[in-house]
């Protein structure tokens, strides 16, 4: 049953991507409404999947690499529903759906028990893991908003904008959305760190250092922008770079240590 829910959510994301692509080709793009509906349905199906997995495992369903990816894409979708509709960020769904689809498809094709590490029954560990994934959900959407900012800024700088320009929101709105998502993600990541420290204060391994590096990178990025040392262009670029770095390194490291063991 949970697999069906997962397939259904993947279908909704796939449908959103295809519809965006087709309508955009026809020049009839009406951003926002359709993507918001498709992603909301996708998130609902994912929520059902995570609920069922949680009941089976009697813990937060983030024990295997596929589950981690699904949880992460669920968090990105959830943030999109809140941000996308609140700020009416047109076209954000068109950028978000492919990212979620990529994560979810990877999860579907990976062996379901890959890198299985039973989350301990310690609630602090569960809080640590869940908060960390929610933080990366927020960072994921900040990455999307940052990409949209860079594209729109390039369009405006070109003095000869393409049709995409009409569908993208203003750069000031994208700046605001990117910044808020980065701060939100940073707060969740800090809570996750605190929970991890309470659960196991003495575990200082490579994962700890990489996670600290990611936390520090986000902290310095936000601080730099707050005190006007970092222009929005660079902040958007860093929002993309740090998220992709974390997305590749953290699960990759887990996979690598699993293979070594």
């Amino acid at each position: 049953m949970e697999f069906l829910a997962l397939l259904a959510s993947t279908f909704f994301y796939f449908f959103s991507c295809c519809s965006t692509w087709l309508t955009f080709r026809k020049g009839q793009f009406h951003p926002g409404r359709f993507d918001l509906t498709a992603i909301t349905l996708g998130v609902l199906c994912q929520s059902y999947f995570l609920l069922l997995r949680g009941q089976i495992e009697q813990a937060c369903p983030i024990g295997t690499l596929p589950e981690i990816l699904i949880f992460l894409s669920w968090a990105i979708g959830l943030f999109y529903i809140v941000i996308g509709s609140t700020y009416r960020v047109s076209l954000m769904g068109a950028f978000t759906a492919p990212l979620i689809l990529a994560l979810q498809t990877t999860a579907l094709f990976l062996p379901r028990s890959l890198v299985s590490s039973k989350i301990s029954s310690n609630p602090w560990i569960e809080t640590h893991a869940a908060m960390s994934l929610i933080a990366f959900g927020s960072f994921g959407l900040a990455c999307v908003a940052g990409l949209m900012f860079l594209i729109q800024k390039r369009q405006l700088k070109s003095q000869h904008p393409s049709p995409l320009f009409h569908h993208l929101p203003s750069i000031l709105l994208l700046e605001k959305v990117t910044l808020r998502l980065l701060w939100l993600g940073f707060i969740f990541l800090s809570i996750s760190f605190a929970a991890g420290f309470i659960a196991a204060p003495l575990v200082v391994d490579l994962k700890f250092y990489i996670s600290l590096l990611v936390w520090g990178a986000y902290f310095l990025t936000l601080l730099g922008h707050q005190y006007h040392y970092l222009a929005m262009n660079r902040l958007a670029f860093l929002a993309i770079f740090i998220f992709l770095f974390a997305l590749l390194i953290l699960p990759g490291m887990r996979l690598f240590s699993h293979l070594l063991n």
């Binding site: 020049g27 009839q28 729109q152 405006l156 049709p163 320009f165 009409h166 993208l168 929101p169 203003s170 750069i171 000031l172 709105l173």
Partner: peptide, 22 residues
Amino acid sequence: QITRGASSVGSVAVELAEKIFG
């Protein structure tokens, strides 16, 4: 796309301003 884009210098300026500042 009959309403697409702005069709006078003034309205293009407004559209560009809105794409910068909202």
